[in-house]
């Protein structure tokens, strides 16, 4: 979070994390498409020739002023491919919230788990107190015929007993994308309220 008292801006950073091809960029593209132009900046996408995310995708979402302060959400995705570990660490710096986009396809469970462990390790390495980062889990691609049952995914990803919001989505259709974003923003604002000014 970065609060500029002169301009009255509250900048918050939300990072979409997850294994390769789970739909992180699709989430962001969908949000960008549905946000009124006056409320969003351009979307920046650093892609390889194969249309895979190289560094990150980025967009800014602005909400109207609340009590004299203007909330601005900086939304990032990280590259999911294993080789881009350094980029993921960079993008996680200063994150207030993380949306973990899991791939529901049954054959991708191992990748989901490894990416979740990678997230945990990167937050630890960055010196970020995991309790200060609000986490939301999204089970994406629920429309596919080989989607694993939700209960199975929760068990495999060791989410049972945890309090993270878990949402289902079909990001290509826009289903569940806004609810996920709302949960992430709600989590970030709750976390700020409960912890006060970080530091």
């Amino acid at each position: 979070m970065f609060v500029n008292r002169e301009t009255g801006e509250i900048n918050l950073k939300i990072v979409y994390y997850g294994p390769a091809l789970s739909g992180k960029t699709t989430n962001l593209e969908c949000i960008h498409k549905h946000t009124p132009p006056e409320r969003r900046g351009n979307m920046v996408a650093l892609k390889t020739y194969g249309d895979r995310t190289l560094f990150f995708d980025y967009m800014q979402l602005e909400l109207p002023s609340i009590k004299g302060y203007q909330p601005k959400f900086n939304l990032y995705t990280v590259p999911g491919q294993v080789v881009y570990a350094a980029s993921r660490k960079l993008v996680l710096q200063g994150a207030d919230g993380v949306v973990f986009v899991a791939d529901s396809q049954i054959g991708r469970m191992k990748h989901n788990l490894l990416s979740l462990l990678d997230l945990h390790q990167n937050l630890k390495d960055a010196g970020t107190d995991a309790k200060r980062v609000s986490l939301v889990i999204q089970f994406n691609k629920r429309d596919l015929s080989d989607a694993a049952p939700v209960a199975y995914m929760r068990r495999i990803m060791r989410l049972d007993g945890r309090t993270f919001p878990v949402l289902q989505s079909v990001a290509t259709e826009g289903y569940g994308v806004l609810d996920t974003l709302k949960a992430a923003i709600d989590g970030v604002s709750s976390r700020i309220r409960s912890t006060g000014a970080p530091g």
């Binding site: 979070m1 909400l63 009590k67 923003i185 604002s189 700020i192 309220r193 006060g196 000014a197």
Partner: peptide, 20 residues
């Protein structure tokens, strides 16, 4: 402290509804 209280979170949620 940042200017965030319970009311702020509720208004934020409303504004999200309005924007989308």
């Amino acid at each position: 402290r940042p200017p965030v209280d319970n009311d702020f979170g509720a208004v934020l949620a409303d504004e999200l509804e309005n924007v989308f």
